[in-house]
Amino acid sequence: MSLDVGTLAGQMLAAALPILKQGATDAESFAKTEFTKIAQTIVSLGEQVASGQVNEQQARLFLDMQASASRTVLLTLEGLALLTVEQAINAALNVIKGAVNDALHFALIP
């Protein structure tokens, strides 16, 4: 049995693509809710500054807190994306495992 690069790549892509798409959908849903919460805080902060409830120094500190919260959300998205890619690579390797190991007569892919 010979190995064909095009066939192997096609099988790997078919295994990886649904995982990548699902990962993107999950990340979008997470980001949407988290950024909505942060946007609500910004609006509320604007109202508080206007009404004099907080001074300018406090407003700047709140804005800094908000920037940190946004960075934390984005870092989670980065981590989730890495996990999705990792899962896609493993699924892609798994789908060609049988064909590759059979063709080579040894377990190249464990």
């Binding site: 509320s44 902060l45 508080q48 709140f62 807190m65 940190s68 919260a69 959300v73």
Partner: peptide
């Protein structure tokens, strides 16, 4: 409101 804002941001993180 200020407490709630801080709470929301920290909870988000």
């Amino acid at each position: 409101t200020s407490v709630t804002n801080a709470e929301t941001l920290i909870t988000t993180s």
